[in-house]
């Protein structure tokens, strides 16, 4: 365990020491279908370039996102997560993002409390018209997580990669 604490310490302060050469972070992006997924599609159709580290999962609404998904992502494959939904007031399902917002804040603070850097769990509101904003968000999240280095916490019994 001590070695791992050291990993954490090093990875926060000097990622290049712990990160293997050519290490690229994996970011799990969970996007709501109606705003953020459509916004990310618009980023594509507008050919706005962003780092290739994000892996996108489509859900109907940000309120579908169980905190379990974030915990599981961080425990298994991801070095960071991004959840994105409709702007407040724009939810396709009227109020889903308001319920989600409360859960996100508590989940983020709790994960931070038990030792995950707050930048590993990020949230955004991206509308279907905000293609450039989506690229900006992914840029920021990717940069943040590259600075933090690979995530080792609770990954000891990781899944064998296929």
């Amino acid at each position: 365990m001590e070695a791992e604490v050291k990993d954490q310490l090093v990875s926060i302060e000097k990622p290049e020491l712990i990160a293997p050469p050519n290490w690229e972070p994996v970011i799990m992006g969970i996007l709501c279908n109606w705003c953020s997924y459509a916004g990310s599609d618009l980023t594509g159709t507008s050919r706005i370039q962003y780092p290739p580290n994000i892996r996108i999962i489509r859900v109907p609404c940000s309120s579908r996102v169980d905190p379990w998904f974030l915990i599981k992502s961080l425990q298994t494959t991801a070095d960071g997560v991004l959840v994105s939904g409709c702007h407040p007031g724009d939810c396709h399902y009227i109020s889903g993002n308001y319920f989600a917002r409360r859960r996100f804040l508590v989940t983020k603070k709790l994960l931070n409390f038990v030792g995950f850097h707050e930048n590993r769990i990020q949230f955004s509101w991206v509308s279907a018209a905000e293609g450039p904003k989506f690229a900006k968000v992914v840029n920021k999240v990717t940069e943040d997580i590259k600075k933090l280095g690979p995530l080792h916490l609770y990954k000891k019994e990781n899944f064998e990669k296929k």
Partner: peptide, 14 residues
């Protein structure tokens, strides 16, 4: 699998 909007169009340089 959305490999156009989410990959080929946004990572054209790599």
């Amino acid at each position: 699998a959305n490999i156009r909007e989410h990959s080929s169009w946004v990572h054209q340089k790599d």
